Computed example of a mutant assay.
Amino acid sequence: MTWLLVLAGGALGAPLRYLTDRAVRSRYDSVFPWGTLTVNVLGSLVLGVLAGAAVASPAYALLGTGLCGALTTYSTFSYETLRLAQAGSARYAALNAVATVLASLGAVAAGVELGQALTG
């Protein structure tokens, strides 16, 4: 039964990732992958809130594993960073790597604190 929750969450997270990426790209005409950065930070924040709130296993399967798993994208982040480096934009590639890791870690930490505050 848990796999159905993961499937349902993924079915929500994947289109949400696509639509968020498109919305961000339409606002920022840049070679920097702002859309991917946005979904990764947003997903990290949501996952942090879930972990901090210590949500029950079924909800975590739906929202944490399914939704956040499909919303965030390490593979696209990696590809876009490589593409920037190969195109001669080493600074953007480095900025993308550093910004994604630091912002995502900050977001998950803030999410944990928020989740604990909401339930504590």
Rank of each mutant, 00 (worst) to 15 (best):
G66Q: 14
L62T: 13
A70K: 14
A99R: 00
Y60W: 15
V101D: 01
T65F: 06
R83Y: 01
T72P: 08
R91D: 12
R83N: 03
L95M: 13
L62G: 10
Y74K: 03
L71I: 14
A97P: 01
V101K: 05
T73Y: 04
A94V: 10
S89P: 02
G66H: 12
L102F: 06
A90W: 04
S75P: 06
A90L: 09
T72F: 11
L82Y: 06
F77G: 14
Y79L: 08
R83A: 05
L102T: 04
T76Y: 01
T65G: 09
L82D: 00
A70C: 12
R83S: 02
A90N: 09
A61W: 03
L62M: 13
E80V: 03
Y79R: 04
Y92E: 14
C68K: 12
A85K: 03
C68L: 14
A99G: 01
A94Q: 05
A87G: 07
L62R: 14
N96C: 07
Y79C: 00
L63F: 15
A90P: 02
N96F: 13
G69M: 13
L82E: 00
L82V: 08
S89F: 11
L95C: 10
G66W: 09
A103T: 04
L82F: 10
G64R: 13
F77R: 00
S75W: 02
A94T: 08
